[in-house]
Design a binder for these strands. Sequence first.
DNA 1: GTATCGATGATCT
DNA 2: GATCATCGATACC
Length: 189
Amino acid sequence: MSKAPPSAFWTQPVVDLARALIGCQLLVDGAGGTIVETEAYDVDDPASHAFGGPRGRNLAMFGPVAHAYVYKIYGIHWCLNFVGGVHPGSAVLIRAIAPTQGIETMIARRGLSDPRKLCSGPGKLAQALSIDRRLDGAPLDQAPFALTLGNEADIVVGPRIGISKAIDHPWRFGARGSPFLSRAFPKDG
DNA sequence: GTATCGATGATCT
DNA sequence: GATCATCGATACC
């Protein structure tokens, strides 16, 4: 059976954490599935909201690990991050999930029936899992969150998506060949 | 298949 | 006023 991550899981380097989260199961109020795509954002990373120190919306990033950081982007979409890493201010963006539980609920929230489009992107999964500002700073080991460790051997790496700074860091991770990724990886095998 | 663009609001200069 | 860790609709190849 699956277990919740130990505290040491969260305090490993954030890039390692992003890789380790691939294959873990994430449920929010009973809806969700297997994490198939993540990105790491380090505290000294110009592309990170934490760059420049704690202020405004990024305060949750400097809070305790194993908590959520949720923000709104482009005035429309919510994005879910997991706070973790060696230093305060780093976090992992959850970019895509393979839906396994609460699929009917997620279909209703998204207004779509194609399972490949339910959670294949940060804004999409936030809508499918009903993520919004009320979960900013919420602990991941308590309801409505339920996170359990998983295994994923075949992981692909690539540059992060949608950023304009530090674009060369290969800090995007995905389950190779998954049909639930937000986009294909550049040099997939 | 790829390219471009509008929505819509918080944050930053 | 510009930018933004996005998405979906549209136009074109």
